[in-house]
Structure formats: C-alpha cells, structure tokens
Amino acid sequence: MADTTICSEIAGTVWKVFVEVGDAVEADVPLLLLESMKMEIPVVSSDPGVVVEIFVAVGDSVAQGSPVLSIRC
C-alpha cells in the first residue's frame, strides 16, 4: 500500500470535485474536472485505490504538475 500523489497534467481551474476523502476509486475514472482550453478535462488515477487527501477546491487555479489529490493504491 503506497500513497500516490496525482498531479494535474495541465494548467486550468478546478471546476468540479467528484470524490471525498475515503472514497474507493477505479482506474481511469474522473475524480475531478478541470476547465482548460474551454474543455472539461478530467483528472484520473492510473490505478484503483482510496482517496487519502484532496489538495484543491472548486475554483482553484492549478498549474501543470501541481498536486491535486493523493490515492492509496
């Protein structure tokens, strides 16, 4: 069991957050949505796991590569 920090692949604004700490999540399923380039761009985990921490809230600006949430796989 290791914690993996998931970072934003793209600069954008947090538009929706679908998960809460403690939620079990599947691989490649949207955890939150960023708005960037006029697109709704999902943040996903490559592996299934449990959400440990969420670092952002709706409305936050995120830079490319900045941590968004962490998952225990």
Binding site: E9, I10, D28, S36, M37, M39, I41, P42, V44
Partner: peptide, 8 residues
C-alpha cells in the same frame, strides 16, 4: 485521447 490533457 481527449480524456488526457484534453488530447493536447
């Protein structure tokens, strides 16, 4: 794949 980086 628009699912990742909006396809960029």
């Amino acid at each position: 794949n628009p699912m990742f980086k909006g396809g960029a």
